[in-house]
Every structure is written in C-alpha cells, then in structure tokens.
C-alpha cells in the first residue's frame, strides 16, 4: 500500500480516537463506538471488553438504516439521532457527516442532555475530516494490497472454508 496514504490515515485516525476518548470521558459514558453505514466498526473508546462488537455494529447500522426509511415514509429527510432508553443502560446513536454512525452507551452516571450536547460538539469537529477520509478512500481504493497478500489470504481461505 502507498506509504503516504497510510501516514495520512494514521494521523487522522489518532485525532478521531482522541476525540472519542474525550467524548467518553466528558460524558462519563461506558463506551463510544464509531461504525460505518455498512455495519463495520471503525474504532471505539471506553470499555468495550464485554460487548459483542460485530453484532453491536451491525445492529446499530441496521437500526439507523431502518429508521431512515421510516423517516422517508412520513416525508422526513432523516432522523439524525436515535435514543434507546433502558433501566440501567441507554444508547444514543447519531449520524456524522451523513456517513458514519456514532453510538454512545451510557448509564445513570450521566444524563441524556449532556450526552446529546457533547456528541453534537464531537460530530461538528469530525465531520470535515470524515468527508476528506471518505473521498481519499474512494479515490485510492485500488492498490490497497499486493499480490503476496492475496496469495496468503487465499491459502488461509482454503483452510478456513474446507
């Protein structure tokens, strides 16, 4: 893969990760997850050790996609945030730059109001960066891996799916 590409992303991902950690700390949330619209985790902050991350990411994306379609049915462009309230834990989900999903899991240690304000601040801060990252990803999609990678991956695939 091109060196400069990796370098660029390293820097931007660090800023994203720092922002998520700051959000998690300031809102006293359990964890913060950043997920793409296809349901894949981009990165996370806070304590996610007890969480089934692939399932959480997939369901959050599906939840958001389903809700967007519900919005469409009643003539709304989008519902930009979702809130699921539980007896002990709650989830606040919000869309950044129309491209990535930010999910915050929190307890009664904090309030929905605080989470909402801080998420908005983080979203504003990161929106431009995501626009840039996704543009770069789309334009430099090919050439991400080399022949050696493909050959090793194919050998692994053959043994995994025997």
């Amino acid at each position: 893969m091109p060196e400069d590409k990796e370098g660029t992303f390293e820097e931007e991902f660090q800023i994203i990760k720092d922002s998520l950690e700051e959000l998690c700390r300031e809102t006293k949330s359990l964890s913060v997850l950043l997920i793409d619209k296809a349901g894949q985790l981009i990165t996370s902050a806070g304590n996610v050790s007890s969480l089934d991350i692939p399932s959480f990411a997939t369901l959050s994306a599906a939840d958001f996609a389903a809700t967007s379609n519900l919005a469409d049915l009643i003539g709304e462009h989008d519902f930009s945030t979702l809130f699921h309230q539980g007896a002990r834990k709650s989830i606040y989900v919000s869309l950044i730059a129309d491209k990535v999903i930010l999910a915050v899991i929190f307890t009664k240690e904090t309030t929905l109001g605080l989470v909402r304000i801080k998420v908005k601040k983080t979203a504003e801060k990161l929106a431009n960066m995501f626009d840039r990252i996704f543009q770069t990803l789309e334009s430099e999609y090919s050439g991400a891996v080399d022949d050696e990678f493909i050959s090793e991956a194919e050998t692994e695939l053959d043994s995994l799916f025997e």
Binding site: D52, S55, L59, A62, V145, F149, E152, A153, E156, L157
Partner: peptide
C-alpha cells in the same frame, strides 16, 4: 463470532442473519 438471527415467530428471516468470520492475520 455469534450467529445472529432476526426472524419472525415463524422462523422466517425478518431483517437478516449475521455471522462474522475471521480469516486471521494476513501480512
């Protein structure tokens, strides 16, 4: 990972089934 199914009471898939599979580490 875990096999997740979102189905109806009649066992028809309502939304989707989901299964994450890891290939391991390559390069």
């Amino acid at each position: 990972g875990k096999l997740m199914s979102l189905d109806t009471e009649l066992d028809r898939t309502l939304f989707f089934d989901f299964l994450p599979v890891d290939l391991g580490t390559v390069k």
